[in-house]
Design a binder for these strands. Structure first.
Length: 568
DNA sequence: GATGCTAGCGCC
DNA sequence: AAAGGGCGCTAGCATC
């Protein structure tokens, strides 16, 4: 803990709001214990004046409450102002208004509809200064009070504790997200370009032509298919050509093609592989998304219904494994890359309170743990069964294995089964911390005349929604654990930097550089790598305790120190 | 010229 | 040997 943070007891925590006031900004103390408005600063000019006011107030370690972290925090970060804590009213409201535990109506009030409709600020350069173009400013204090009243009204104390934790983690996640975009992921553009040259050949001179390696594949491919004009970039043409060549296919997916025996298939698969690379992460990707050695996507905490993060800009969350060798730590710096082995099965053990499965999860490899306990024959079987349980496989080998493990772990497997059944009935399900699934739409609410008439089709729709709710509870709780992990780690890294007396700015200190559902990349000066690795582990242990309390489930990390992401 | 759609594939 | 959840993004094509 920093001196400022530890000196201040919880009951004296200040809650400060940033609120638009015309083309100026008011900094207001909004906690109810405030006896006067001595801390208020009104009419601050966006820019230096505002940034300095925030930096001064930050010395008391307040909670910053604002409509949307993405609107305010990027500006502060660019000015070198880092804040410890935040309450993101947009994200909090999104969770609260869906929660069945929150009494209906408590979030009503002035501007409720506008709060509900709030979209994340996207263009952070313009967002703050465009504020004056909006309607009247949203009342930050009123919404903060409404939300806290809604939280306080959650009847069950444990449910309330979890929901509070979720809101805190979500708000911290918003801080992490802004910081990730601010610092960026270190990418060596020259190395990325070299990988492209080695695989797809020379960059074409015009956007209309193909990279050389793709170009060279065209003549043999056309010859093998016996279709001299086929454009392999057009699935419909490929499909027609395949059928002319006598192959009985209905789509051109790689997996489908790989089952066929025909001389054109290897060429086609190779073409598809390289074409994908060229279009998704080729030179244009490099030009567009990598600047000054950094890749900076926009992260959207809670951007996925389950609570997972979404990301925009260059397909951040599907960064191809084959290009990760271009992701290199700066000179004198290193990466700590950590991922959770089998996050979702472990989370399932925790949320279902399945002691037998938690015991199997005591091993660092849960799948092997299932084999060692005689549950299944092979590790692949264990994996198949777990994935089947979480995604809703019913048939074939996977379905059989699910049935087998259901006997051994009735609590865990019963838990997802109940979530699926609830979904099939059209009910809302919740994650462990209390994020609720959306109510089903379409076929449940549509007029009867719009519904598929035959019972078979209706049943398929219901099963489909059941598979969604089945997965929702697990995927969503996994995301909650990951948010708690990152929020804790963010704090530990800052405390570590203070202790080590590192330079003041975030980019000069060890920081999170990338996040991928159950994996993080921390960029750190080599001198503190050991301490950072310990912090990564400690944060995971804290997250597990925060979410699951004393229930004995383990979420072990695989943490490595590497100079290139590819070596993780 | 902008927008919406499908097919397909990368990641977890 | 194949199927089950969540995404973002691209090319090509159709439509406004």
């Amino acid at each position: 803990m920093t001196p400022a943070a530890s000196a201040r007891r919880p009951d004296t925590v200040r809650v400060l709001a940033l609120q638009r006031n015309g083309d100026r900004v008011d900094l207001l103390r909004i906690d109810r214990s405030a006896s006067d408005d001595a801390d208020d600063a009104r009419g601050l000019r966006p820019g230096t004046e505002l940034n300095q006011a925030v930096a001064r107030a930050e010395s008391d370690a307040p909670i910053w409450v604002w409509d949307d972290t993405a609107r305010w925090y990027p500006h502060l970060l660019r000015a070198g102002v880092r804040v410890r804590r935040a309450g993101d009213l947009r994200l909090r409201r999104q969770i609260l208004r869906r929660s069945p535990a929150v009494p209906v109506g408590l979030l009503d009030g002035v501007d409720a509809a506008r709060w509900d409709a709030l979209a994340p600020a996207s263009d952070d350069a313009a967002a703050l200064f465009d504020l004056h173009e909006q309607d009247a400013p949203l009342d930050i204090r009123a919404e903060w009070i409404r939300q806290n009243a809604a939280l306080a009204a959650v009847a069950d104390p444990e449910a309330q504790r979890r929901l509070r934790l979720l809101l805190t983690a979500e708000s911290s996640g918003a801080l992490v997200a802004a910081e990730l975009s601010h610092v960026g992921l270190p990418v060596r553009a020259d190395e990325h370009a070299r990988l492209l040259r080695d695989t797809i050949g020379e960059r074409p001179l015009s956007a209309a032509s193909r990279p050389s390696a793709l170009d060279r594949l065209i003549p043999p491919l056309r010859a093998a298919l016996g279709s001299p004009d086929v454009n392999p970039d057009v699935p419909a043409q490929v499909l027609a050509a395949l059928r002319r060549a006598g192959l009985d296919v209905t789509d051109t997916r790689s997996w489908t093609l790989s089952q066929l025996d025909h001389p054109a298939i290897p060429l086609l698969l190779e073409y598809k592989r390289l074409a994908r690379l060229a279009s998704a992460n080729g030179w244009r990707w490099l030009d567009t998304w990598v600047h000054d050695g950094r890749y900076r996507p926009t992260y959207l905490p809670g951007g996925v219904v389950t609570g997972r993060w979404a990301a925009q800009g260059g397909g951040a969350l599907s960064y191809p494994a084959g290009l990760r060798s271009a992701v290199r730590a700066d000179p004198g710096w290193t990466f700590l890359v950590a991922d959770v082995a089998q996050l979702e099965p472990r989370v399932l053990a925790g949320m279902s309170r399945d002691l037998a499965m938690a015991e199997a999860a005591g091993d660092s490899d849960l799948y092997q743990g299932l084999v060692d306990r005689g549950a299944v024959q092979t590790r692949d079987d264990a994996k198949l069964a777990m994935l089947g349980a979480m995604y809703g496989a019913t048939s074939g080998e996977s379905g059989r294995l699910v049935a087998r493990l259901t006997e051994l772990f009735p609590l865990a497997f019963g838990f997802v089964e109940q979530a699926a059944k609830a979904g099939e009935r059209g009910e809302v399900v919740q994650t462990f911390l209390g994020r609720a699934s959306p109510a089903p739409d379409g076929f449940w609410t549509a007029p009867l005349s719009d519904l598929p008439t035959d019972g078979e089709a209706r049943l398929r729709e219901r099963r489909k929604w059941g598979r969604f709710t089945r997965n929702f509870v697990v995927q969503g709780t996994g995301a909650e654990w990951a948010s708690c992990w990152m929020a804790t780690l963010r704090n530990l890294l800052w405390e570590l930097s203070e202790r080590e007396d590192l330079p003041p700015r975030l980019e000069q200190r060890p920081h999170l550089a990338f996040f991928l559902h159950d994996e993080i990349v921390v960029h750190a000066p080599q001198g503190v790598a050991g301490a950072v690795a310990e912090a990564v582990d400690e944060a995971a242990a804290t997250a597990t305790r925060l979410v699951f309390g004393r229930f004995p489930v383990r979420l072990p990390l695989k943490t490595v120190q590497v100079d290139s992401w590819a070596d993780a």
